[in-house]
Amino acid sequence: MAERPVLQVRNVSISYLARRGRVRAVSDVSFDLHEGETLALIGESGCGKSTLNLGLIRQLPANATIDSGSILYTRRDGQIVDVLKLRPQELRRFLWSEVSMVFQGALNALNPVLRVSDVVYDTASAHGMPRAEAKRRALDLFARVRLDPERVFNAYPHELSGGMRQRVLLAISLLLRPQIVLMDEPTTAVDILTQRSILDVLEKLRDELNFSVIFVSHDLAVAAEIADTVATMYAGKIVEHGPVNDVFYRPRHAYTLSLLNAAPRLSAGAEELASIPGSPPDLIQPPPGCKFHPRCRFASDLCRDKEPELVSKEAGHLVACHHSDEVLATSREVRA
């Protein structure tokens, strides 16, 4: 993982308009993504991670807006692009060739009346790549993701299984050699054995082609396996961000700790499952202070009054919690 930041996100806030009011889906998020780094965005459903992902490439639904912040992308030649200021034509060229996205591989991610080859040619012609080269690259990528290249190339989406579709989507996302690949729950919709093969394929591709990944998931195990850094999100904010081993072995935020505790361990006996009491906050009228404090066992009056900032506690390990030291101490006890 090199030091050059490929993506610099600063104070990004995204909200969308619902009937009841304005939903603050993402609040004041900042982070850097380095060349070759795999960042896992972890959180519950509705914490804003998918919204953030879509916002990075400006593919939000019509009723959502990026209210503030900046997203700076550095191209391979060093030129810096302000993503939020791109004009429509420029954005179209930027999409897929610099940053691509792998959606969940449900049947609906691929146009049912078009073959996979049509999808490839479409993408290629939209970015000025000749068909022959597109086909060559596609077949190469299909082989790398362990699909039979010729047959998949000519198939219709409904002739492929869920796992195969996911791998096709993965391969197509690399067609134009982007620097960053965004992934939205890529292993959620498939069974565990297919999950395994998709992860293997992803790791291999990453090593061979050297791209950065932002991996959105709620699955801690998957994140632990392939991520370099982990960021946990809660109620639209990043509450902890650091190298994967640091965050998982020495968590400093109560939410991260609770997530880790909630995951049942093979070595443990038939103990009661620990869950996090309460439910996620209302993002239209969020609680004051730290958004997690109603569900946090370390909470104090300070947590209710003042919202904690994301500060660096160790090298590269940031956390937004007033009681991060206590959390760390507790986690050490638990792991002991």
Binding site: I57, R92, L95, W96, S100, F103, A106, A109, D122, T123
Partner: peptide, 13 residues
């Protein structure tokens, strides 16, 4: 449908 969102994300005209 999802494939429309994917198509847009692919930068298709």
């Amino acid at each position: 449908e999802d494939y429309i969102a994917v198509a847009k994300a692919r930068g298709l005209p």
